[in-house]
Structure formats: structure tokens, C-alpha cells
Amino acid sequence: MENAIEIHNLTKKFGDFTAVDNISFTVRKGEIFGFLGANGAGKTTAMRILCGLSIPTSGGGTVAGYDIVREPEKIKRHIGYMSQKFSLYPDLKVWENIRLFGGIYGLSDKEIASRTRDILSGLGMEDVRNSFVDSLPLGWKQKLSFSIAMIHNPRIVFLDEPTGGVDPETRRRFWELIYEATSGGVTVFVTTHYMDEAEYCDSVSIMVDGRIEALDSPAALKEKYGAENMDAVFRMLAGRAKRGE
């Protein structure tokens, strides 16, 4: 079976600095893949390449079946992306945000209308369709932002620290949304600073100084490093980092 992501010997240099140092990994279709690392380990650089926003210095691979060097534009159209820092336009209404992103991804008016109905009823947000996104509670914004990232039915969605700063219950409800999405076959690639969330992933990779130091299921990683939880695994590996941020 084809993998959602296949990366071979990926390297990205900025001048003398090797931000991503010869990494290789695969993400299976339908799995939740946790992409962890200390600040400055090279996660953001690697993620930008996977999302078609940056071209590697050497190495290559595919995301959603498209070549990361030759077809970055196709990758952008076929993946979903959500970040806690930026996703929705606060000064647009709920339906306007859906309309905008539907348009950006090239959906027809008819598709947008039907997707809008699906999203609003799926989230129980019909009553706030005319509210400005700014006025919504953070938990709602987050769910809406996730649904909008999936508006074009991407086969893989990238979530960049999706739960930063939200309250503990909302954080957990969000992961339940992720589980629902993967049960429908979507592949999820997620970064987080909450180590309990690493336990929710099928596979976890830990980047240290530009390289992938460990990649396995949380259970296998805990066993390998004799650690009680993923927090301890992370500290053991990321604590060895030589370079600053």
C-alpha cells in the first residue's frame, strides 16, 4: 500500500547551517504521526518542506503521492494545514471563513454550499454561522479551524501545535476529533509540546539537532528507553541536543 509520506535523505541547509540533516521516514496511510523535537531541532523547516513551502537542499520524497521537489504546488492543493497561531480570519463571519477557504481550494459554489452545511451541522454551529469568528470561544475556533483545514477532503492533514494554550478539556475533545477523522482514513501529521498527546499517536518521531533520533510507536519507545512515559523519553533524547535554538 502506498504511504501518505515517504521521505529519503532529506537535508536542508541555510548557508553553513544544516537545519535538517539527512532524515528519512515514512508515514503510513491513516495513522496519527507525532512529529516531536526540542525548539530549534529543525521541525518547522522539515514541516515547511513537507507542505510544499520550501525545497530541500538534497534528498526527496513524496507527500500524498506528489514529489516534494517537483510538485510542491500539487502538494499544497492536496493537503490540509492548521496551526494554533494562524488559521481563521477573526474579522470574517463563520460562513465567510468557510467560503473563503473553499474558494482558495478551488471548490465550486455548489460544493462550498454543501460543505458549509456539513461543517456547521457536524460541529453544531448552525446558530453562529453569522457570528464573527473573533467572538467565538477558543475551543469552537479550534474545531472550526480543523474542519476548514479538511474542507477539500485532503488525504493528509498537518496540525502544527493545534492545542497550544487551550484548556485541558478542550484539548482532549480536540484529540477526539482527530480520532474521528482518522477513523475515516485521513492521515494526521501533528506537532505538540504536550507529551501526554504524544501517547495518542500511532507513531512518534523525535528530532534532535536536525536528525531523527527515534521513531516508533509510543509503547515501543517507552520500552526501548526504559521510560515510564513519553515525557521521560523526550527528555532523555532532547536533553542530548548540542545546538541551541
Partner: peptide, 10 residues
């Protein structure tokens, strides 16, 4: 410590 990794937070 917002947005700071687990090691640096410690």
C-alpha cells in the same frame, strides 16, 4: 514557558 519544549521548560 508557552511554546517552549519540555526540556527547556524544566
Amino acid at each position: 514557558t508557552t511554546g517552549v519544549d519540555a526540556v527547556s521548560r524544566k
